[in-house]
């Protein structure tokens, strides 16, 4: 940390290298985490924020080693609790840009409670969840996002736990920004990281991340190059939901159920398709999109929801200002002498 990082203000143009540390990156060769780290380091200089004002906070798990590799302030905390630590940092100093790096076990299993409450409070935190649908660091047990029936170290006959959908949880918890991307699409990932960075409030980005050791290829059915155009769909604000190699398939709503239609067949036109609105006040539509899974549906990526709402720390700082305005700045003399007092001579 001493040989670099002498930035004194935002005016200095930083490069990707400025965000790298001298610590050897210790993820398994071929891990999807490398791609996420590379994209975060690539996006960082473009944000124009001095690196001393950036903090990366993580819990426990493979993904949570992330802060050690970012030449910013960093805190590798305890399992599942990163959002709590991050809340304390952000509330103490709202000028900082605070990122939370977590995994499917960390955020959704042991840390489900903190994940939910950080989102509902709308603390301005940028939460990236590396979802590899497995416990990697403890060597291959099933996670809360593992598919039903998956065989692994702790479920040799297949899991009997129904998985949770991280996006459903985020919507239910009132997250003001919800997005999804994947390690194998660096360009899209970079765009999503930029969007997350720009959001004011609790932001959540799920990243499909391949664990090539314990759960290799869990997403490849739909995100491999040859199939992804037909099996995935990119959400774009204000645009109809169109996908497919020939750009002729689309999503139409039938009541509250999405259905796949082909434009130009059976009288279907583009006008029949669902138009994505990431700014809708209520999360009903994005919730429906977040539930679309392969093989029934193409898997959506992009920004599902992005709405504005006062943040927790803004409101807290606001209450402090109001208290100072109405009561005056705190006086210790007055405080200790408050209530009924008497003098003994």
């Amino acid at each position: 940390m001493s040989e670099n990082g002498h930035t004194t203000n935002g005016a200095v143009k930083l490069t990707r290298k400025d965000f790298q540390t001298d610590q050897e990156v210790r993820w398994c060769p071929g891990c999807g985490d490398y791609s996420i780290l590379a994209q975060v380091q690539k996006v960082m200089p473009e944000l124009g924020i001095p690196k001393e004002k950036i903090v990366f906070i993580s819990g426990i798990g493979c993904s949570s080693r992330f802060p050690y590799y970012m030449n910013t302030y960093g805190f590798h905390t305890i399992h599942g609790r990163a959002p709590a630590f991050a809340t304390g940092v952000k509330v103490a100093n709202p000028d900082l840009q605070v990122w939370v790096i977590t995994g499917d076990g960390d955020a959704l299993s042991i840390g489900g409670n903190h994940f939910m409450h950080a989102l509902r409070r709308n603390v301005d935190l940028k939460i990236i969840l590396f979802n590899n649908r497995i416990y990697g660091l403890t060597k291959g047990q099933y996670s809360p996002t593992s598919e039903l029936g998956k065989r692994n170290k702790s479920a040799p006959m297949g899991t009997i736990d129904y998985p949770i959908n991280p996006l459903s949880l985020a919507f239910a918890a009132e997250a003001t920004f919800v997005g999804r991307s994947m390690d194998v699409d660096p360009k899209h990932l970079a765009t999503m990281i930029e969007r997350l960075a720009a959001h004011k409030g609790s932001g959540f980005l799920e990243v499909y991340q391949n664990c090539n050791i314990f759960n290799d290829g869990t997403f490849k059915n739909f995100n491999e190059r040859e199939v992804k155009e037909d099996r995935m769909i990119q959400l774009e604000h204000g645009k109809p939901l169109i996908f497919g190699k020939n750009k002729n398939k689309g999503i139409r709503l039938n009541g509250v159920t999405p259905e796949i239609v082909t434009v130009g067949e059976n009288g279907v036109t583009v006008d029949d398709l669902l138009v994505h609105n990431e700014n809708a006040r209520e999360p009903n539509l994005p919730y429906i999109l977040g539930r679309m899974q392969f093989p029934e549906y193409p898997v959506p990526v992009g920004v599902f929801r992005a709405i504005e709402r006062p943040t927790y720390e803004q409101m807290l700082v606001g209450q402090i200002s109001t208290a100072v305005e109405t009561k005056g700045a705190g006086s210790l003399e007055k405080l200790i002498n408050s209530g009924e007092t008497w003098v003994i001579n």
Partner: peptide, 13 residues
């Protein structure tokens, strides 16, 4: 403390 230029560092358990 975070916000201090040039002292970026990582701590953890």
């Amino acid at each position: 403390i975070p916000g201090t230029p040039g002292l970026e560092h990582r701590i953890g358990g």
